[in-house]
Design a binder for these strands. Structure first.
Lengths: 252, 252
DNA sequence: ATCATAGTCGTCTGCCTGACGATAAACACT
DNA sequence: AGTGTTTATCGTCAGGCAGACGACTATGAT
């Protein structure tokens, strides 16, 4: 391995972000509209170049803060304040994934509670939360009647991988609490699972499971009635990060 | 995103390989001795630069073939011939991880059956299978009395991450068969689990579990007595890739 | 022949899950 | 005030699976 720079090909390295949240009972991802070619006008995942003196996780946290204002958690720490969970997802380096040059993108996955409104450098029209189902469909029309175009680059694949990671990870970890505000009810947590998995769960069995798993939830003592119906106990995320035995995702 | 190359810092991109196998009841990894600075003479994971026209997985497969002669599997296909399982692990890009220049390394994990002997460009003295426990200890003496030095660069972290990935993935997938030859017995598969997890498993419950999981193992009809004792049925890996319910790793 | 070794089949008990009945506590009506 | 609706929470019961472990089988070694 000589120092001669001609001995290896130069790459551009970027981070792309799959930022997920749950809004109106649907799993949504943050998308930004591209302002320049290639794929001008198309939706894409937020991201940018890694700077010369930055670690990959630093770059991802910086991009996340620039796009959403969220500050990232250390992935090993339990989710407790309203910062987002951030972890590395996978790296995409097909030689043709960017027509301009050789770009290797280190994708990261962020999970955030429902946020007021996206801001892409202050320009709200160029960023939005979209249901992942809508972003992943190849073509057709969205729920607002607008025509839908596929995501730019290989971002549909990255988004699909991120969604799959989130779906499987909430099975055996307490990560679903990252979608909730700092205090939440069992019902709100259940609706997170239902939105991410796209299934209906039995409220009684879910309640038994999450309250019976030591360290998963700690009661705050308060109650709320913001969902209507009988007041529900408020909880915050406990210290446990791994669920053992896991939460079982229903078949099919 | 302009085309101007000065707009983004150039990176070198490499692939590093965590190649695991089970030898003599121990989980072992392939290590190569560095022939030049930095870390000259120290052990490291095999790896190399990604070429200009190569995908990341192609580069990893090429390095794997160069180091071991194994040909890689498509990760989505079931393990069936004596090729190795290969999947992306994670990407490491700390600005200081290589003192010479900015290098981002996309680590891959390979699982292989026990191989005759390593060959690093034909030079056997510069490559070896070492128990991961020995490679991960910070200092001291190996089982042969040789002094042990930590792995070069951040390779100890990469190896630890790869081992952890393998340990957790054999819980819920049929990946453990990648450590076995094409035909194997239930006892041989059990010894793989025992070596990877470092625990003893009940042979009777293990037998019930693996033979009772549909699609995991298919009998070939043959038997063998190569382990001594009563002849055992030979199996090959079935089409199933996911184990549901998973194999449970004993506590502590 | 006897022993050691490994493989295979069963049994039993406890835990967890899925299905679902029942009760409790709020709000929106009339 | 009463009734219905909604959500939360507790209980019960049967089935499935895992851990513990007994019993038997088939080989090679002594």
């Amino acid at each position: 391995m000589p120092y001669d720079p001609s001995a290896f090909p130069p790459f551009a390295v970027t981070v792309d972000l799959v930022v997920l949240t749950v809004r109106r009972h649907a799993l949504c991802a943050l998308a930004v509209r591209r302002g320049e070619p290639p794929f001008q006008g198309r939706w894409a995942l937020p991201g940018g170049f890694v700077r010369a003196d930055e670690d990959l996780s630093q770059a991802a946290a910086r991009e996340l803060a620039e796009e959403t204002g969220l500050c990232a958690h250390d992935p090993s720490a339990p989710v407790q304040d309203n910062g987002a969970h951030l972890e590395q997802l996978a790296t995409y380096g097909d030689p043709k994934r960017d027509p301009r040059m050789r770009v290797v993108s280190v994708a990261h996955l962020a999970l955030a509670p429902d946020l007021p409104a996206p801001r892409a450098g202050g320009d709200a029209s160029n960023a939005r939360w979209a249901p992942v189902e809508e972003l992943l469909q190849q073509s057709g029309y969205g729920r607002d009647g607008e025509p839908v175009a596929p995501l730019a680059f290989d971002h549909a694949q990255i988004l699909a991988d991120g969604v799959e990671r989130a779906r499987s990870k909430i099975e055996y970890s307490s990560l679903a609490t990252a979608f909730c505000p700092s205090e939440f009810t069992v019902g709100e947590l259940r609706r997170v699972y239902e939105a991410v998995w796209g299934v209906a769960l039995d409220p009684r069995n879910f309640h038994r499971k999450v309250t019976g798993t030591p360290g998963f939830l700690v009661p705050t003592g308060g109650t709320t009635t913001r969902q209507g119906g009988r007041p529900a106990q408020l909880f915050r995320a406990g210290g446990a990060t791994l669920l053992n035995p896991p939460m079982l995702r229903p078949e099919v």
